[in-house]
Nucleic acid binder design. Structure first.
Lengths: 235, 235
DNA sequence: GCGGTGGGGTACGTTTGCGTACAGATTTTA
DNA sequence: TAAAATCTGTACGCAAACGTACCCCACCGC
């Protein structure tokens, strides 16, 4: 797909930069580890840094007044954490939490704004990603309203599998329940259904995808919809 | 709030233009009626026009593969229909449907892109609105997952009341059920609860808000969250 | 090796909302 | 004015998911 044989960076957005543009950027960026569960951007706090994942993934989480949480979007190396900044807001009510450990490229908000301001095509690419994220969140709204826990769980596993690039996913039932905004026991039962059908195997804090196509069948149309639109826009 | 005593236009975004900028735009725009239920932008079709409501409102709707529908966002005179275009996409999977009759200013996609390209502060204002819409949709995702039909209905009535600026809303139970993605009878029951508490009165295809604060109490925190963020960003 | 902690399996009654259906009332159309 | 369409109220059984609780097991640190 990439015309350049070796993209300058694993992150798809930064990877689209020319070698020169990326080199110019390099003194301004920082390679950071994304340890599991770390909160990189807290809702309603001023956004100080943006993150371009190279591996692993972030969850966009909304924390409610009673402390309960629910995920509204996933961001992997196809995107970046900091869309509100791009759109002119200095903060948003969503948290960004590391959902799968990995590495990311970070830069300060000021640097980010300067870079975006000076590179039109890069900016346009980021905006297109913002649209992708918007579609993803829209579809999550639909999914939460209409689909069952097993369907939503299957969708979620697929999205995570895509971004992590490996079948073993480090996920406890409780964590999954926070993400989907459902009961922990609901996750247990749904995973048992999947295991019985041979779609996944489970271990302590671990879910391993065994039949990708099987999981796809168990998921609702939302997965396909988001994938289709994402590909159409940024493939 | 507005420093200019008479904004050039009822739509908040176009209204922020200087008199000169708006005058320059005037030959390129069209004032259109928004008749109830009319679909102005069909999902996955190329977006040919954008719309800036001056009164009335649009719903952003997702139509599923089985034909069922659900709303993910509302757009009134604080915003515009055509965010995907602004972000560089020529289409999005969402439909835009007139949910409250009114008037809008329309322009072609080409004109829109030209205007946006030539007016930086206007563009920034639109981007900020895109962020608002994004927050609204995010909160809808949360709301759909966690809140009851009466809570969501109350929220929806408030959002509509805000945008229509009048207590009588033309809404049938069936239409509301499409919007919230729930059963028609569920709406009937919820409205009866509201009526019993004196929050609203109902008539054939009509809901009239009687106690604004009562409806606010019946709604979930989502209404407040979105309102707070919207004000913070574009007030 | 032992106790503590966190993860997972299971159960039970309850609530919410679904799907469906039907009848009466009102409005629109012929 | 009659017929048709639309809107609302109501009902019933059923499924999904909830809140809660308890137990066991695996793993970790001491």
């Amino acid at each position: 797909m990439a015309s350049n044989p070796a993209p300058v960076c694993d992150n798809a957005l930064l990877g689209s930069l020319t070698r020169e543009a990326f080199a110019a950027l390099e003194p301004l960026i920082e390679y950071v580890e994304m340890p599991l569960k770390k909160v990189f951007s807290k809702g309603s706090k001023t956004i100080k840094h943006v993150f371009f994942p190279c591996s692993g993934m972030f969850s966009l989480i909304r924390t409610m007044e009673d402390g309960s949480t629910i995920e509204v979007g996933l961001i992997g190396k196809e995107g970046f954490v900091g869309v509100p900044l791009l759109l002119g807001a200095s903060a948003s009510p969503l948290d960004a939490l590391v959902q799968g450990a990995g590495k990311a490229i970070s830069m300060s908000a000021a640097t980010f704004l300067k870079v975006v301001d000076g590179n039109r095509s890069f900016r346009n690419r980021l905006l297109l990603y913002a649209q992708c994220l918007h579609i993803q969140v829209s579809q999550t709204a639909v999914c939460n309203a209409r689909h069952t826990v097993p369907q939503r769980l299957a969708r979620w596993i697929l999205e995570t599998h895509d971004r992590m690039g490996q079948p073993e996913l480090s996920l406890s039932h409780e964590f999954l329940s926070y993400m989907l905004g459902v009961r922990r026991a609901g996750i247990t039962v749904a995973l048992q259904q999947f295991t019985a059908k041979g779609l996944v195997t489970t271990g302590r804090s671990k879910v391993t995808v065994r039949s990708r196509t099987g999981v796809e069948k168990a998921a609702c149309e939302c997965y396909r919809t988001v994938q289709r639109e994402t590909r159409r826009l940024i493939a």
